[in-house]
Design a protein around this nucleic acid. Sequence first.
DNA 1: TCAAAAGTGTTAAGTTTACACCCATGA
DNA 2: TCATGGGTGTAAACTTAACACTTTTGA
Lengths: 214, 214
Amino acid sequence: MHKYYKTHTKFYISVDCIIFGFTEGALKLLIQERPYEPGKGLLSLIGGFVEVDESIDDAAKRVLAEFTGLDNTYMRQLGAFGDVKRDPGERVVSVVYYALINVNEYKRTIEGNARWIDIENLPSLCFDHNLMVEKALTKLKENLADEPIGMNLLPKYFTLTQLQTLHECILGTSIDKRNFRRKIMEQGYVVKTNMIDKKTSRRGASLYKFDNKS
Amino acid sequence: MHKYYKTHTKFYISVDCIIFGFTEGALKLLIQERPYEPGKGLLSLIGGFVEVDESIDDAAKRVLAEFTGLDNTYMRQLGAFGDVKRDPGERVVSVVYYALINVNEYKRTIEGNARWIDIENLPSLCFDHNLMVEKALTKLKENLADEPIGMNLLPKYFTLTQLQTLHECILGTSIDKRNFRRKIMEQGYVVKTNMIDKKTSRRGASLYKFDNKS
DNA sequence: TCAAAAGTGTTAAGTTTACACCCATGA
DNA sequence: TCATGGGTGTAAACTTAACACTTTTGA
Protein backbone atom coordinates (compact mmCIF):
# COMPACT_ATOMS: atom_id res chain seq x y z
CA MET A 1 0.00 0.00 0.00
CA HIS A 2 2.53 2.59 1.06
CA LYS A 3 5.56 1.40 -0.69
CA TYR A 4 8.09 3.56 1.03
CA TYR A 5 7.28 2.16 4.47
CA LYS A 6 7.94 -1.36 3.26
CA THR A 7 11.66 -0.79 3.03
CA HIS A 8 11.81 -0.46 6.80
CA THR A 9 11.83 -2.85 9.69
CA LYS A 10 9.09 -3.59 12.18
CA PHE A 11 9.61 -4.11 15.88
CA TYR A 12 7.89 -5.59 18.84
CA ILE A 13 6.66 -2.90 21.17
CA SER A 14 6.01 -3.62 24.80
CA VAL A 15 4.62 -1.49 27.56
CA ASP A 16 6.08 -1.65 31.03
CA CYS A 17 4.16 -0.21 33.93
CA ILE A 18 5.82 1.17 37.01
CA ILE A 19 2.99 0.78 39.46
CA PHE A 20 3.45 2.73 42.66
CA GLY A 21 1.48 2.14 45.80
CA PHE A 22 1.71 3.55 49.30
CA THR A 23 1.15 1.36 52.30
CA GLU A 24 2.68 0.74 55.72
CA GLY A 25 4.13 4.20 55.51
CA ALA A 26 6.30 3.35 52.53
CA LEU A 27 6.28 3.75 48.81
CA LYS A 28 5.91 0.40 47.06
CA LEU A 29 6.36 -0.95 43.60
CA LEU A 30 4.38 -3.78 42.06
CA ILE A 31 6.60 -6.37 40.43
CA GLN A 32 6.30 -9.88 39.18
CA GLU A 33 8.51 -12.76 38.27
CA ARG A 34 9.00 -12.73 34.57
CA PRO A 35 6.80 -15.51 33.23
CA TYR A 36 8.71 -16.47 30.10
CA GLU A 37 12.12 -16.73 28.60
CA PRO A 38 14.51 -15.05 28.29
CA GLY A 39 14.98 -14.20 31.94
CA LYS A 40 12.14 -16.35 33.17
CA GLY A 41 11.81 -15.94 36.92
CA LEU A 42 13.75 -12.67 37.11
CA LEU A 43 12.05 -9.78 38.82
CA SER A 44 10.33 -7.58 36.31
CA LEU A 45 8.03 -4.65 35.95
CA ILE A 46 4.46 -5.37 35.01
CA GLY A 47 4.41 -5.45 31.25
CA GLY A 48 2.91 -6.76 28.08
CA PHE A 49 3.00 -6.35 24.36
CA VAL A 50 1.22 -3.74 22.30
CA GLU A 51 -1.32 -5.32 20.02
CA VAL A 52 -2.37 -4.28 16.58
CA ASP A 53 -5.67 -2.61 17.35
CA GLU A 54 -4.74 -0.57 20.39
CA SER A 55 -2.89 2.65 20.99
CA ILE A 56 0.15 2.47 23.21
CA ASP A 57 -1.73 4.30 25.94
CA ASP A 58 -4.52 1.77 25.68
CA ALA A 59 -2.07 -1.10 25.86
CA ALA A 60 -0.68 0.33 29.08
CA LYS A 61 -4.17 0.72 30.50
CA ARG A 62 -5.01 -2.81 29.54
CA VAL A 63 -1.90 -4.23 31.13
CA LEU A 64 -2.52 -2.25 34.28
CA ALA A 65 -6.10 -3.47 34.45
CA GLU A 66 -5.06 -7.07 33.83
CA PHE A 67 -2.70 -7.01 36.76
CA THR A 68 -4.52 -4.82 39.26
CA GLY A 69 -8.16 -4.93 38.32
CA LEU A 70 -8.02 -1.14 38.18
CA ASP A 71 -9.30 1.28 35.65
CA ASN A 72 -9.23 5.05 35.52
CA THR A 73 -5.86 5.22 37.06
CA TYR A 74 -3.44 8.10 37.25
CA MET A 75 -0.94 7.17 34.59
CA ARG A 76 1.79 9.04 32.76
CA GLN A 77 4.15 8.07 30.03
CA LEU A 78 7.78 8.08 31.04
CA GLY A 79 9.27 7.51 27.61
CA ALA A 80 10.48 4.91 25.19
CA PHE A 81 13.43 2.66 25.88
CA GLY A 82 14.94 1.44 22.70
CA ASP A 83 18.48 0.17 23.04
CA VAL A 84 19.19 -2.60 20.58
CA LYS A 85 20.12 -5.17 23.19
CA ARG A 86 17.90 -4.08 26.05
CA ASP A 87 15.89 -7.28 25.78
CA PRO A 88 18.36 -10.11 25.29
CA GLY A 89 15.80 -12.27 23.51
CA GLU A 90 14.53 -10.16 20.68
CA ARG A 91 14.60 -6.54 19.70
CA VAL A 92 11.78 -5.04 21.72
CA VAL A 93 11.17 -1.35 22.20
CA SER A 94 9.49 -0.63 25.48
CA VAL A 95 7.26 2.33 26.19
CA VAL A 96 7.16 2.88 29.91
CA TYR A 97 4.37 4.31 32.02
CA TYR A 98 4.12 4.96 35.70
CA ALA A 99 0.87 4.64 37.55
CA LEU A 100 -0.25 5.61 41.02
CA ILE A 101 -2.78 3.36 42.65
CA ASN A 102 -4.49 2.99 45.96
CA VAL A 103 -3.30 -0.33 47.27
CA ASN A 104 -6.59 -0.90 49.07
CA GLU A 105 -8.37 -1.01 45.76
CA TYR A 106 -5.77 -3.28 44.23
CA LYS A 107 -7.06 -6.74 43.55
CA ARG A 108 -4.69 -9.53 42.88
CA THR A 109 -5.80 -10.93 39.57
CA ILE A 110 -5.33 -14.14 37.69
CA GLU A 111 -2.04 -12.80 36.42
CA GLY A 112 -1.19 -13.85 39.89
CA ASN A 113 2.43 -13.68 40.84
CA ALA A 114 2.65 -9.90 41.21
CA ARG A 115 3.67 -8.50 44.59
CA TRP A 116 4.55 -5.26 46.29
CA ILE A 117 8.11 -4.46 47.17
CA ASP A 118 9.57 -1.56 49.02
CA ILE A 119 10.98 1.20 46.88
CA GLU A 120 13.82 1.64 49.35
CA ASN A 121 16.32 -1.13 48.75
CA LEU A 122 14.90 -2.20 45.46
CA PRO A 123 16.21 -5.55 44.25
CA SER A 124 17.87 -5.96 40.91
CA LEU A 125 15.28 -6.15 38.16
CA CYS A 126 15.68 -7.67 34.74
CA PHE A 127 16.99 -5.86 31.67
CA ASP A 128 16.81 -2.07 31.98
CA HIS A 129 13.96 -2.04 34.46
CA ASN A 130 15.96 -0.54 37.32
CA LEU A 131 16.84 2.38 35.10
CA MET A 132 13.17 2.83 34.28
CA VAL A 133 12.22 2.92 37.94
CA GLU A 134 14.93 5.44 38.68
CA LYS A 135 13.65 7.74 35.99
CA ALA A 136 10.10 7.31 37.17
CA LEU A 137 11.07 8.31 40.69
CA THR A 138 12.76 11.43 39.41
CA LYS A 139 9.72 12.35 37.41
CA LEU A 140 7.41 11.60 40.30
CA LYS A 141 9.31 14.08 42.44
CA GLU A 142 8.94 16.81 39.86
CA ASN A 143 5.33 15.88 39.54
CA LEU A 144 4.64 16.20 43.23
CA ALA A 145 5.67 19.83 43.10
CA ASP A 146 3.03 20.64 40.46
CA GLU A 147 0.10 18.38 41.12
CA PRO A 148 -1.64 16.98 44.18
CA ILE A 149 -0.86 13.40 43.21
CA GLY A 150 -1.31 12.13 46.76
CA MET A 151 -4.99 11.56 46.10
CA ASN A 152 -4.11 8.68 43.83
CA LEU A 153 -2.01 6.84 46.36
CA LEU A 154 -3.96 7.39 49.55
CA PRO A 155 -7.28 5.98 50.66
CA LYS A 156 -10.29 8.27 50.48
CA TYR A 157 -9.78 9.46 54.04
CA PHE A 158 -6.32 9.98 55.42
CA THR A 159 -4.49 11.87 58.10
CA LEU A 160 -2.10 14.72 57.44
CA THR A 161 0.66 12.63 58.91
CA GLN A 162 0.01 9.98 56.27
CA LEU A 163 0.08 12.61 53.55
CA GLN A 164 3.30 14.01 54.93
CA THR A 165 4.89 10.58 55.11
CA LEU A 166 3.92 10.03 51.50
CA HIS A 167 5.58 13.28 50.47
CA GLU A 168 8.65 12.35 52.46
CA CYS A 169 8.84 8.94 50.81
CA ILE A 170 8.58 10.38 47.36
CA LEU A 171 11.00 13.22 47.94
CA GLY A 172 13.36 11.20 50.08
CA THR A 173 13.69 14.01 52.60
CA SER A 174 12.09 14.81 55.89
CA ILE A 175 9.72 17.73 56.00
CA ASP A 176 8.92 20.08 58.84
CA LYS A 177 5.46 19.26 60.11
CA ARG A 178 4.28 22.81 60.66
CA ASN A 179 5.54 24.06 57.32
CA PHE A 180 4.03 21.09 55.58
CA ARG A 181 0.60 21.50 57.13
CA ARG A 182 0.50 25.21 56.48
CA LYS A 183 1.37 24.73 52.83
CA ILE A 184 -1.10 21.92 52.26
CA MET A 185 -3.88 23.95 53.85
CA GLU A 186 -3.02 27.01 51.78
CA GLN A 187 -3.16 24.98 48.60
CA GLY A 188 -6.66 23.92 49.47
CA TYR A 189 -6.60 20.52 47.80
CA VAL A 190 -7.59 18.74 50.98
CA VAL A 191 -10.39 19.39 53.40
CA LYS A 192 -10.90 18.26 56.95
CA THR A 193 -13.73 15.89 57.76
CA ASN A 194 -15.35 15.33 61.14
CA MET A 195 -13.94 11.86 61.35
CA ILE A 196 -11.13 10.90 63.64
CA ASP A 197 -8.71 8.11 63.01
CA LYS A 198 -7.77 6.32 66.20
CA LYS A 199 -5.60 3.64 64.70
CA THR A 200 -2.30 5.42 64.78
CA SER A 201 -2.41 7.31 68.02
CA ARG A 202 -4.18 7.35 71.33
CA ARG A 203 -5.23 10.89 70.85
CA GLY A 204 -6.57 10.32 67.35
CA ALA A 205 -5.94 12.33 64.19
CA SER A 206 -8.42 14.18 62.02
CA LEU A 207 -9.18 12.52 58.75
CA TYR A 208 -8.96 14.63 55.61
CA LYS A 209 -10.09 14.04 52.07
CA PHE A 210 -9.21 15.53 48.74
CA ASP A 211 -11.50 18.29 47.67
CA ASN A 212 -12.96 17.42 44.29
CA LYS A 213 -15.11 20.52 44.14
CA SER A 214 -12.41 23.07 43.45
CA MET B 1 13.63 -18.55 19.12
CA HIS B 2 11.52 -16.94 21.77
CA LYS B 3 8.20 -18.47 21.12
CA TYR B 4 6.11 -16.23 23.28
CA TYR B 5 7.10 -13.09 21.43
CA LYS B 6 5.93 -14.57 18.15
CA THR B 7 2.30 -14.32 19.09
CA HIS B 8 2.55 -10.54 19.02
CA THR B 9 2.57 -7.91 16.36
CA LYS B 10 5.44 -5.82 15.10
CA PHE B 11 5.23 -2.16 14.22
CA TYR B 12 7.07 0.44 12.25
CA ILE B 13 8.82 2.85 14.55
CA SER B 14 9.75 6.30 13.38
CA VAL B 15 11.66 9.08 15.05
CA ASP B 16 10.54 12.67 14.66
CA CYS B 17 12.89 15.47 15.58
CA ILE B 18 11.73 18.84 16.77
CA ILE B 19 14.72 20.90 15.83
CA PHE B 20 14.81 24.30 17.44
CA GLY B 21 17.01 27.14 16.34
CA PHE B 22 17.31 30.76 17.36
CA THR B 23 17.95 33.45 14.82
CA GLU B 24 16.73 36.92 13.97
CA GLY B 25 15.62 37.24 17.56
CA ALA B 26 13.09 34.47 17.25
CA LEU B 27 12.76 30.82 18.06
CA LYS B 28 12.58 28.71 14.91
CA LEU B 29 11.62 25.20 14.00
CA LEU B 30 13.13 23.18 11.18
CA ILE B 31 10.48 21.57 9.01
CA GLN B 32 10.24 19.95 5.63
CA GLU B 33 7.66 19.01 3.11
CA ARG B 34 6.79 15.41 3.61
CA PRO B 35 8.52 13.56 0.78
CA TYR B 36 6.20 10.60 0.36
CA GLU B 37 2.63 9.46 0.60
CA PRO B 38 0.45 9.61 2.53
CA GLY B 39 0.47 13.32 3.05
CA LYS B 40 3.18 14.02 0.50
CA GLY B 41 3.90 17.74 0.45
CA LEU B 42 2.37 18.46 3.84
CA LEU B 43 4.54 20.25 6.35
CA SER B 44 6.21 17.80 8.64
CA LEU B 45 8.78 17.46 11.33
CA ILE B 46 12.13 16.06 10.36
CA GLY B 47 11.79 12.34 10.70
CA GLY B 48 12.79 8.90 9.60
CA PHE B 49 12.38 5.26 10.42
CA VAL B 50 14.22 3.29 13.04
CA GLU B 51 16.32 0.59 11.47
CA VAL B 52 17.13 -2.82 12.76
CA ASP B 53 20.66 -2.27 13.98
CA GLU B 54 20.27 1.04 15.78
CA SER B 55 18.86 2.16 19.09
CA ILE B 56 16.06 4.66 18.98
CA ASP B 57 18.39 7.34 20.31
CA ASP B 58 20.86 6.52 17.55
CA ALA B 59 18.13 6.69 14.94
CA ALA B 60 17.24 10.18 16.15
CA LYS B 61 20.87 11.24 16.04
CA ARG B 62 21.23 9.84 12.55
CA VAL B 63 18.15 11.63 11.30
CA LEU B 64 19.30 14.87 12.85
CA ALA B 65 22.72 14.51 11.28
CA GLU B 66 21.25 13.67 7.88
CA PHE B 67 19.22 16.84 7.85
CA THR B 68 21.52 19.32 9.56
CA GLY B 69 25.02 17.96 9.21
CA LEU B 70 25.27 18.22 13.00
CA ASP B 71 26.55 15.81 15.55
CA ASN B 72 26.86 16.04 19.29
CA THR B 73 23.73 17.97 19.61
CA TYR B 74 21.65 18.70 22.68
CA MET B 75 18.80 16.26 22.28
CA ARG B 76 16.14 14.95 24.61
CA GLN B 77 13.42 12.40 24.18
CA LEU B 78 9.93 13.81 24.44
CA GLY B 79 8.06 10.53 24.41
CA ALA B 80 6.32 8.01 22.22
CA PHE B 81 3.23 8.81 20.20
CA GLY B 82 1.26 5.72 19.51
CA ASP B 83 -2.32 6.32 18.54
CA VAL B 84 -3.59 3.70 16.16
CA LYS B 85 -4.52 6.13 13.41
CA ARG B 86 -1.91 8.80 13.96
CA ASP B 87 -0.33 8.02 10.63
CA PRO B 88 -3.10 7.54 8.11
CA GLY B 89 -1.01 5.26 5.93
CA GLU B 90 0.18 2.53 8.21
CA ARG B 91 0.42 1.93 11.88
CA VAL B 92 3.57 3.77 12.88
CA VAL B 93 4.64 4.53 16.41
CA SER B 94 6.73 7.67 16.60
CA VAL B 95 9.32 8.40 19.22
CA VAL B 96 9.87 12.12 19.36
CA TYR B 97 12.99 14.04 20.25
CA TYR B 98 13.68 17.70 20.48
CA ALA B 99 17.05 19.15 19.64
CA LEU B 100 18.62 22.55 20.12
CA ILE B 101 21.05 23.65 17.47
CA ASN B 102 23.05 26.69 16.59
CA VAL B 103 21.66 27.81 13.26
CA ASN B 104 25.03 29.16 12.20
CA GLU B 105 26.43 25.68 12.28
CA TYR B 106 23.46 24.24 10.44
CA LYS B 107 24.29 23.08 6.96
CA ARG B 108 21.58 22.42 4.50
CA THR B 109 22.18 18.87 3.36
CA ILE B 110 21.17 16.78 0.43
CA GLU B 111 17.93 16.01 2.23
CA GLY B 112 17.31 19.42 0.89
CA ASN B 113 13.85 20.78 1.34
CA ALA B 114 14.08 21.56 5.04
CA ARG B 115 13.57 25.14 6.15
CA TRP B 116 13.23 27.26 9.26
CA ILE B 117 9.88 28.60 10.31
CA ASP B 118 8.95 30.88 13.12
CA ILE B 119 7.63 29.19 16.21
CA GLU B 120 5.13 32.00 16.63
CA ASN B 121 2.30 31.41 14.20
CA LEU B 122 3.24 27.88 13.40
CA PRO B 123 1.45 26.50 10.34
CA SER B 124 -0.57 23.36 10.46
CA LEU B 125 1.68 20.31 10.32
CA CYS B 126 0.77 16.82 9.24
CA PHE B 127 -0.63 14.13 11.51
CA ASP B 128 -0.02 14.77 15.20
CA HIS B 129 3.06 16.91 14.66
CA ASN B 130 1.53 20.10 16.04
CA LEU B 131 0.77 18.30 19.27
CA MET B 132 4.35 17.11 19.42
CA VAL B 133 5.67 20.63 19.03
CA GLU B 134 3.35 21.91 21.71
CA LYS B 135 4.60 19.33 24.16
CA ALA B 136 8.18 20.07 23.24
CA LEU B 137 7.69 23.75 23.94
CA THR B 138 6.22 22.98 27.32
CA LYS B 139 9.13 20.76 28.16
CA LEU B 140 11.61 23.29 26.86
CA LYS B 141 10.24 25.87 29.27
CA GLU B 142 10.63 23.55 32.21
CA ASN B 143 14.07 22.75 30.96
CA LEU B 144 15.15 26.34 30.81
CA ALA B 145 14.52 26.68 34.53
CA ASP B 146 16.93 23.85 35.35
CA GLU B 147 19.66 23.96 32.78
CA PRO B 148 21.54 26.64 30.87
CA ILE B 149 20.29 25.42 27.52
CA GLY B 150 20.95 28.75 25.84
CA MET B 151 24.46 27.61 24.99
CA ASN B 152 23.04 25.19 22.48
CA LEU B 153 21.04 27.75 20.58
CA LEU B 154 23.36 30.74 20.60
CA PRO B 155 26.61 31.32 18.78
CA LYS B 156 29.79 31.01 20.78
CA TYR B 157 29.81 34.70 21.62
CA PHE B 158 26.60 36.53 22.32
CA THR B 159 25.26 39.59 24.08
CA LEU B 160 23.12 39.47 27.18
CA THR B 161 20.33 41.05 25.20
CA GLN B 162 20.42 38.11 22.81
CA LEU B 163 20.34 35.69 25.71
CA GLN B 164 17.44 37.56 27.25
CA THR B 165 15.53 37.58 23.99
CA LEU B 166 16.06 33.84 23.74
CA HIS B 167 14.64 33.33 27.22
CA GLU B 168 11.71 35.56 26.38
CA CYS B 169 10.99 33.61 23.21
CA ILE B 170 11.05 30.29 24.99
CA LEU B 171 9.02 31.43 27.95
CA GLY B 172 6.70 33.62 25.95
CA THR B 173 6.93 36.43 28.48
CA SER B 174 8.93 39.58 28.76
CA ILE B 175 11.60 39.73 31.41
CA ASP B 176 12.96 42.68 33.32
CA LYS B 177 16.41 43.47 32.06
CA ARG B 178 18.00 44.20 35.41
CA ASN B 179 16.54 41.19 37.11
CA PHE B 180 17.54 38.98 34.23
CA ARG B 181 21.12 40.15 34.18
CA ARG B 182 21.51 39.85 37.91
CA LYS B 183 20.23 36.31 37.90
CA ILE B 184 22.33 35.17 34.96
CA MET B 185 25.44 36.62 36.54
CA GLU B 186 24.67 34.97 39.87
CA GLN B 187 24.29 31.62 38.17
CA GLY B 188 27.73 31.96 36.74
CA TYR B 189 27.15 29.99 33.55
CA VAL B 190 28.28 32.83 31.35
CA VAL B 191 31.39 34.93 31.47
CA LYS B 192 32.16 38.28 29.93
CA THR B 193 34.79 38.51 27.24
CA ASN B 194 36.72 41.59 26.17
CA MET B 195 34.98 41.62 22.84
CA ILE B 196 32.35 44.14 21.92
CA ASP B 197 29.59 43.56 19.45
CA LYS B 198 28.83 46.65 17.43
CA LYS B 199 26.23 45.18 15.14
CA THR B 200 23.15 45.84 17.20
CA SER B 201 23.86 49.22 18.74
CA ARG B 202 25.99 52.27 18.27
CA ARG B 203 27.37 51.96 21.76
CA GLY B 204 28.22 48.29 21.40
CA ALA B 205 27.43 45.46 23.75
CA SER B 206 29.83 43.19 25.58
CA LEU B 207 30.05 39.70 24.23
CA TYR B 208 29.72 36.84 26.65
CA LYS B 209 30.37 33.15 26.34
CA PHE B 210 29.30 30.11 28.27
CA ASP B 211 31.74 29.06 30.90
CA ASN B 212 32.72 25.48 30.28
CA LYS B 213 35.14 25.35 33.16
CA SER B 214 32.66 25.23 36.02
C1' DT C 1 1.26 8.84 85.00
C1' DC C 2 3.53 8.48 81.05
C1' DA C 3 4.55 7.38 76.31
C1' DA C 4 3.30 8.47 71.76
C1' DA C 5 1.48 10.90 68.07
C1' DA C 6 -1.39 15.29 67.03
C1' DG C 7 -1.58 19.80 66.68
C1' DT C 8 -0.18 24.72 66.58
C1' DG C 9 2.82 30.49 65.30
C1' DT C 10 6.50 33.35 64.81
C1' DT C 11 10.77 35.07 63.06
C1' DA C 12 14.71 35.16 59.91
C1' DA C 13 16.58 34.24 55.44
C1' DG C 14 16.22 34.05 50.83
C1' DT C 15 14.01 34.85 46.47
C1' DT C 16 11.35 37.37 43.28
C1' DT C 17 9.36 41.40 41.47
C1' DA C 18 8.83 46.19 40.38
C1' DC C 19 10.72 50.17 38.97
C1' DA C 20 13.87 54.68 36.04
C1' DC C 21 17.73 56.82 34.78
C1' DC C 22 22.47 57.60 32.73
C1' DC C 23 25.95 55.95 29.11
C1' DA C 24 28.31 55.60 24.73
C1' DT C 25 28.20 56.06 20.02
C1' DG C 26 27.29 56.69 14.90
C1' DA C 27 24.60 59.00 11.89
C1' DT D 1 22.65 66.61 18.96
C1' DC D 2 19.84 63.02 19.20
C1' DA D 3 18.06 58.43 18.66
C1' DT D 4 19.21 53.82 19.91
C1' DG D 5 20.21 50.05 22.54
C1' DG D 6 23.55 49.07 26.74
C1' DG D 7 24.13 49.12 31.26
C1' DT D 8 23.20 49.68 36.35
C1' DG D 9 20.77 49.43 42.19
C1' DT D 10 17.34 49.44 45.67
C1' DA D 11 13.19 48.55 48.21
C1' DA D 12 8.84 45.88 48.84
C1' DA D 13 6.43 41.61 48.49
C1' DC D 14 6.46 37.05 48.82
C1' DT D 15 8.15 32.41 49.80
C1' DT D 16 10.72 29.18 52.29
C1' DA D 17 13.05 27.48 56.29
C1' DA D 18 14.02 26.98 61.07
C1' DC D 19 12.49 26.15 65.39
C1' DA D 20 9.64 23.86 70.57
C1' DC D 21 6.02 23.30 73.27
C1' DT D 22 1.12 21.80 74.61
C1' DT D 23 -2.74 18.40 73.94
C1' DT D 24 -5.09 14.06 74.25
C1' DT D 25 -5.74 9.53 75.65
C1' DG D 26 -5.03 4.40 76.16
C1' DA D 27 -2.27 1.34 78.44
